[in-house]
Amino acid sequence: MVQSKKQKYWFLAFCLVPTFIMFAIFTLYPLFSGLYYSFFDWSGSSSNKEFIGFENYIKLFNDAIIPDTIVHDYFLVATKVIGIMVLAMFFAVALTQLKIKEAPFYRIVFFFPNIMSVVVIGILWTFIYNPSLGLVNSGLEFLGLEEWAKPWIGDEKWALPSLVLPAVWAGIGLFMLMLMGGIANISESYYEAAKIDGASEWQQFWRITLPLVWPQIKVSILYIVITTLNGSFILVQVMTGGGPNNSTHVMGSYLYQQAFRQYNFGYGATIGVMILILSLITVLVLQFLMRREKVEY
């Protein structure tokens, strides 16, 4: 090709430099200075920014709310992983293996909540849980189970578990599609061979489907974990704002409250560092736990 080296470098710079500058300014710099801010006591105005070393971290370890927020986050992680994976797997198998005619219809419907705004999902579900008007309590009444009716997201004990359902509701479709993609790649011949050997449908599921879609399962679980740790606070913010009485605060919503509501920006950044470290550790541990030789038959 007739192209001088200089020309090539100019073109390369044209492609890469503007984007990288923007990325450095608006993504890299904020992340690193977040780390830096965590060593300061700072209420937002530039005059009273004071270096306090590890004091924010000491405060973090002595803050009684922090352990709760961590527990709440991992509660959401665990329940979401289980709820989403079990249902998504069930639906994925049902829609691929059982040759249902109207499968595309279910696929389209189940996926839709994945692209709904968290605000819409949150408000919709706040209504479903509404103590007097809501669907849940009316349904319980209809079934004659009035004594089970409660204010749900207004109840300290039930608020956090109540947040799981909307998250599962909104998440299933995507993971169902990912698993369906994996199942579609499994060759029919395995199932035929299994049938000849007299394997039941259960056995086929455990011995063929599950091991062969393991890569998709692994990716799905990791994805749910990451998005929950990095984003569970959005639904929390919309539905409960962390209440009642901090019973639904997760790490991110607590950061928001500390930094942007109470102007403890330094402490907020410290919580951010904690979120970063915990999510990195979690991902590494999960990858270690879920490593498994790729199965090939």
Binding site: L16, F20, F23, I25, F26, T27, Y29, P30, L31, S33, G34, L35, Y37, G44, I226, L229, N230, F233, G252, L255, Y256, A259, F260, F265, G268, A269, G272, V273, I275, L276, S279, V283
Partner: peptide
């Protein structure tokens, strides 16, 4: 390296960056 750098942006919790971004 550049590709990995951009892609890891999908996994990093941006909450931490939002505080400095606010002042920036």
């Amino acid at each position: 390296v550049l590709f990995t750098l951009y892609i890891s942006g999908m996994m990093i919790p941006m909450v931490l960056g939002w505080i400095p971004l606010f002042f920036l």
